[in-house]
Design a protein around this nucleic acid. Structure first.
Length: 560
RNA sequence: AGGGGAGUCGCCAAGUGGUAAGGCAUCGGAUUUUGAUUCCGACAUUCGCAGGUUCGAUCCCUGCCUCCCCUGCCA
């Protein structure tokens, strides 16, 4: 947890509302909720919402529920329920009491539907989908009343009962609220609140063949849970009048005691990625990624596998803020947050991903090795011996035959510091038949272990690894999944056209032997390369399987 | 065109009748056996545009412009 004193947490309009409600005594305690539909994995946008809802409860000493909005059995699975729970817990939040499900309220919802029928505020409609669309009107034209709108209470009660009992085919009838077909708000043009759908439900099995719709279910579920502040994204603002309409009638009839307040905020958009469950699902089903937890996915499980830690994701959410304005956040904000939370925790070790062999020609039995700290600022992370051997690998990128100006790494006849070891000088280049440099012959300045050379300054420091004792590992280098900052907003093109062909590169890496005892999800900084994490699924040091994912590179301010 | 929402630095985002917080990014400079970190410093005479009210407006009023969402028996 990094809370910088200079980084004042911005207030936001939702907090202002809550503070006011607490101050005026409208509420003694606030209750929020995170209400996912279990039809996919949670992504970065949900992470923002989770941090908001659970964060609000934490900050104001309130309560936050987890409630699955499971009203559409055709799309919902238990796999998704499990993954969602796991993602929330991993992010560091705990819901209050038992997990709730909208389906817990199906009986109540049915009862209330009968109430609306009895009030003559709901009716069974026989219009099919096409007809209903036609009767609904358009954005600019009013709708017209359904011919079934005037059915008697008795008939409606009976028909609704028969709907529940399976007397009618799927889609043959719906139960609709009787509001206003002429409303300029289409959500108020007699919205359907129950449809017939013979689908197996993850919780209620085959008990029901009619299922309530979101608009009807969500507000009632909120009220039943005494939610005080129901935060959702902007596209639901148009639904608020319906939310309030349903609740107000039920409260007036004493069937409900609380009237939650729906508050909308803008959803998070992140550059070079997509946050649409439907589209993410497409990437998975089309095998364009390895799964929902592919490290390139903006899903919580993907970010976790990528090595993003929960503190980093939380910091990111905090820095994004909450507002109602459209926003497309820079990836640099996410990456900076993740780096910042890894900086003080990740042990530093050395790894070479693109090796160039170096032979230390004057290496002998008196050549010493040093013990090096795992972190330059935090000695408590411990240290290990970094053993120098006659043959080492350095990064190919750290040698340049014709160095560009400002180059401070290795070049012919120049010196460089081997991190945690001696200063070496490149004396000779070995080339293969085609002229490629395949090896460097260097000499050690034996008077430079743990001290600066005398009479000159060697600025460059490069990382290296021993040829004889480095451990080979598979290293997966990740880049952004899309080549386009807004892949789903390019005129008439499918977002899949912009998948970055280089978003995954797999290389063989040579890493310090300390990783033989590493566990899955251990994070390291490979010095000068970036942060890496032992893959959650494939890394298994007990069977000598070393697999690391690149989490994020180090900041690189060197301008070439 | 009807309804809803939004326009404050490259990206987020506070503020609100009294003269523009903060973060990310960027650019300088110091320290550094990671060109990392850390540390200092710079970075909106201006708040979509045009009028008006006012001693004074990003904030109030009027008009305009731009963007997003809404016509599932999805959520």
């Amino acid at each position: 947890m990094t809370i910088h004193s200079h980084e004042v947490e911005a207030s936001n309009f939702i907090k202002n509302i809550i503070e006011e409600d607490l101050k005026t005594g409208k509420h003694q305690v606030i209750i929020t909720r995170f209400p996912p539909e279990p039809n996919g994995y949670l992504h970065i946008g949900h992470a923002k919402s989770i941090c908001l809802n659970f964060g609000l409860a934490k900050e104001f000493d309130g309560i936050c529920n987890l409630r699955f909005d499971d009203t559409n059995p055709e799309k919902e699975t238990d796999e998704y329920v499990q993954s969602i729970k796991e993602s929330i817990k991993w992010l560091g939040f705990n819901w209050d009491g038992e997990v709730k499900y909208a389906s817990d309220y199906f009986d109540k919802l049915y009862e209330f539907a009968e109430f609306f029928i009895k009030q003559s505020l709901a009716y069974v409609c026989d219009l099919n989908a096409d007809e209903m669309r036609e009767y609904r009107g358009s954005l600019v034209t009013k709708g017209k009343d359904s011919p079934y709108r005037k059915r008697s209470v008795e008939e409606n009660l009976n028909l609704f009962k028969q709907m529940r009992e399976g007397e009618f085919a799927d889609g043959a009838k719906t139960l609709r609220l009787k509001i206003d077909m002429a409303s300029s708000n289409i959500n108020l043009r007699d919205p359907v609140i129950y449809r017939i759908k013979r689908a197996h439900h993850i919780r209620t099995g085959d008990k029901w063949c009619i299922y309530p719709m979101y608009d009807y279910t969500h507000c009632i579920s909120d009220a039943l849970e005494n939610i005080t502040h129901s935060c959702c994204t902007l596209e639901f603002a148009d639904h608020r009048p319906l939310y309030d309409w349903v609740i107000a009638h039920l409260v007036k009839a004493n069937l409900l005691t609380s009237h939650p307040r729906q508050i909308e905020f803008s959803r998070l958009e992140l550059q070079y990625t997509i946050t649409s469950k439907r589209k993410l699902n497409q990437l998975v089903t089309d095998n364009l990624v390895s799964g929902w937890d592919d490290p390139r996915m903006p899903t919580i499980s993907g970010m976790r596998r990528r090595g993003y830690n929960k503190e980093g994701v939380q910091l990111f959410a905090k820095r994004c803020g909450i507002s109602k304005s459209p926003n497309i956040v820079d990836v640099s904000l996410l990456e900076a947050s993740v780096r910042e939370e890894l900086e003080n925790k990740a042990p530093r070790i050395m790894a070479v991903l693109n090796p160039l062999k170096v032979v230390l020609t004057n290496f002998d039995e008196y050549t010493a090795s040093r013990s090096a700290g795992f972190h330059p600022q935090h000695a408590q992370l411990g240290e290990r011996l970094v053993e120098l051997t006659r043959e080492i690998y350095i990064e190919r990128d750290d040698f340049m035959l014709d160095p560009i100006s400002g180059w401070q790494r290795l070049t012919a006849n120049s010196e460089v510091r081997l991190r945690h070891s001696y200063v070496i000088k490149c004396d000779e280049l070995i080339k293969d038949a085609t002229g490629n440099i395949v090896e460097l012959r260097c000499s050690i300045d034996k008077n430079t272990l743990g001290k600066n050379p005398e009479g000159r300054k060697v600025k460059g420091v490069i990382h290296w690894v021993s040829v004889t004792n480095a451990i080979e590992a598979q290293v997966r280098l990740y880049d952004r999944l899309f080549t386009e900052a807004e892949p789903d907003r390019v005129n008439g093109k499918d977002f899949k056209e912009f998948i970055n062909p280089h978003s995954l590169t797999i290389v063989k890496g040579y890493i310090e032997p300390v990783i033989i005892s590493s566990n899955a999800e251990d994070c390291y900084q490979f010095e000068r390369l970036g942060y890496f994490v032992a893959d959650r699924c494939d890394h298994d040091s007990s069977s000598n399987k070393y697999v690391f994912n690149k989490t994020v590179g180090l900041k690189d301010t060197w301008k070439k």
